Simulated scan of single mutants.
Amino acid sequence: MTTVVELEIPAARLGFARTFDRVSTFEFQVGGMIGGSAPLVWTNGPDHETVKHALEDDPSVEVVASVADDDERSATDESAVTSQNDRWLFRLEFGDGVKLFEQIVTENDGALLTARGADGRWVVKLLFHDRESVSACHELLEQYEFRVTVTRISGVDDLARAQTPLTETQYETVCKAHELGYFDVPRGVTLKELAAELGISHQALSERLRRSHAALVSAELSERTAPIEIDR
C-alpha cells in the first residue's frame, strides 16, 4: 500500500542549525525536489540581508544564488506579491547530511514530497510504495543517527488534503491561538499571553501570525485550500 510518512528531524543533523541559532524567526520551504542540481529554497526571516548573511555563514549550506526577493518581484504581479510576501528565494547547495538522507530514502524506493522547517527542525514528507520500505528506511535513518520522529503516517488518499500554505509551526500557532480565543471578539487571550503560552517572544509571535494570515488569505483567494488535520 502506498504510504505517506511525515518526519521531524533536528536541523543539526540535516542543515541550517547555525542559521536557526542566529535568526530565531527563520523558516524555510524547499521549492523543488532535492536532487542533482542545487534546489530552490524559500526562506522567511526578519529581513533579506539578515537571512542572506546567516546562510552565507552557515557551514551546512552553500548559497549558490539569491534568486529573488521582495524588491525583485514585479509590482504588476499581484498574485506573486500576495503569496510571496516577506519571503526570499535562494538556490542552496546542501551538505553531506541532506545528501545521505536523500540516498537512504531513494535506495528504499522512497520519494521526497516536501521539506520545510522552523524552530530548529526539519519537517519532511516522504512517499513509499509499501510499509516494508518505510520500515527499512526508518531503520537506516536510526542507524545513521538522524534522530527522526515520525509524526504522521497516512495512505496516499490523504495526499491531496496534505497540501497547505502554512508551515507546521504556523499551523500549530494558529490552532493554539484559536483554542485560547485570540480571534474571538473580545479576545480571550492577549498577544503577550499567547506568546508566553507558546514560549516565544511577542515579536516572533506577531511576525508568525502575520505570515500565517497572508498565506491563508492568499490560498483562499487563489486556490481555496483547506487546512490539513494534523494528528497530535
Rank of each mutant, 00 (worst) to 15 (best):
E223M: 05
F90Q: 14
L113Y: 05
Q170I: 06
W88E: 06
L221Q: 06
R116S: 07
A214E: 11
H129N: 11
V148Y: 13
L14G: 10
S135E: 12
D21C: 07
E168W: 07
D130F: 02
A65W: 09
G188D: 10
D70I: 11
L141I: 06
T2P: 10
A111P: 02
G36E: 11
A136N: 00
M33K: 14
A11Y: 00
S74H: 04
H202E: 02
S212E: 14
D21G: 07
T225P: 05
D184V: 07
P186F: 00
L194H: 03
E102P: 13
T164Y: 14
F16S: 08
E139K: 08
A115I: 15
W42L: 08
H53I: 14
T2L: 11
Q170R: 01
Q29C: 13
H129F: 05
G15F: 07
L166A: 11
V63Y: 03
W42P: 00
A118L: 01
R208T: 15
L221M: 09
R13H: 15
F90I: 15
G117E: 02
W42H: 08
H178L: 03
L198M: 13
W88G: 08
K176E: 11
A65K: 10
L113A: 06
R131L: 15
V123Q: 09
F94P: 01
A215Y: 00
A214F: 09
A196V: 00
F183E: 00
D71N: 11
E72D: 12
V64H: 01
Q163T: 08
G35E: 10
A136C: 02
K52E: 06
L180E: 00
T2I: 08
E102L: 11
Q203R: 13
A196M: 10
E6A: 08
L159V: 07
S83H: 13
R211W: 12
Q203T: 09
A115F: 04
V61S: 13
P59H: 12
G45C: 02
G199H: 09
D158G: 05
A115H: 09
T82Q: 07
D130E: 05
G45F: 05
V51A: 15
A65L: 06
A11G: 14
D21Y: 00
